[in-house]
Computed example of a mutant assay.
Amino acid sequence: MNTTRRSFLATSTAALTGCSLLPGHSRGDWIDAHVHVWTPDVQKYPLARGFAVSDMQPPSFTPEQLFAHCRPEGVRRIVLIQMSYYQTDNSYMLDMMRAHPGVFSGVAIVDETAEGVAETMRGLVKQGVRGFRIYPGKVKNLSAWLGSPGMATLWKTAAELKVNVCPLINPDTLPLLDKMCEWYPDTGVVVDHFARLGMASPAKPEEVKNLLRLARHAKTHVKASAFYALGAKKAPYTDMGPLVRQVRDAFGPQRVMWASDCPFQVEHGHNYRNAIAIIRDRLDFLTEQDKAWMLRGTAEKVFFSAAAV
């Protein structure tokens, strides 16, 4: 799509929705769409089987620690992603959501093979959860995993509840995810971290093509996130600019959301300011309207809107 046509569509969308630069929000009222939190209090919040305290790196990342990084950069709301240390026990995330009303939305983890998973999902949505993370872990047969009866229940229930499936996947899973989006067109999908393109090795053109192909599914979104781990893995991360541009052009800014992936973004010499600055300040092809959607509007629409319960 050329720049003139893309700009026209963005302007038209803003006019239709009455959201030129999304009024009602001040510049800087941003949303971080992907953060993990955990506590060193493993007595109250036990770790899942297979995890040890030594696995928690950093040892602690509480909301208060997060706020010290994000609030100076104008980030006021956050989407919490259930941390793997707790697996399907979402208690700490839910407690933090209750402790900070209006600040957090949540993406939970459930066991799709468990009996009553649909009711479990419904109960979590009533507590403010707006997405369910899926990731293959050590699964070798990705097709059998995504095509399982439990996964079918999870995708169908997410559609019924008007919440999202949030895949953490590698590029080789993109064709299978594309097929799932075909099978479940009413299910909202949010792909984490550009499907980790450029994490293990430079992104291949075919992998980029597979990610952009998902744009044909109207309810599919992409997180522009985890810049510390992708591409050159060095601030200011502007080597990721071409991919950001391709994703924006394919999906439109209304289906792209920025995120930090804290606390990992603020470890090993990386910092929060550089994470948000690549979208906010450093890519001159992003319009003010693009930034308003990517830094706030998309995540607000997807993760802070009402669900069906």
Rank of each mutant, 00 (worst) to 15 (best):
K162Q: 15
K162H: 15
K162N: 15
V165P: 00
C166M: 12
L168N: 12
I169N: 07
N170T: 12
D172K: 11
L174H: 06
L176C: 01
L176E: 10
C181V: 10
C181S: 13
C181F: 00
E182K: 06
E182F: 00
W183G: 07
Y184A: 06
P185F: 10
D186M: 04
T187K: 03
G188L: 07
G188A: 11
V189D: 03
V189H: 04
V189L: 12
V189E: 03
V190C: 12
V191I: 15
V191S: 07
D192Y: 11
D192G: 13
D192M: 14
H193R: 11
H193P: 09
F194G: 07
F194R: 09
F194S: 04
A195E: 11
R196I: 07
L197T: 06
M199G: 01
S201A: 15
K204M: 13
P205R: 05
P205L: 06
E206M: 10
E206C: 09
E207L: 03
E207A: 11
V208Q: 06
K209N: 13
N210S: 12
N210L: 08
N210V: 01
L211Y: 02
L211A: 06
L212F: 01
L214Q: 01
H217C: 10
H217I: 10
A218L: 08
T220S: 09
T220P: 00
T220D: 08
H221C: 15
V222E: 01
K223P: 12
A224F: 07
A224N: 03
A226L: 06
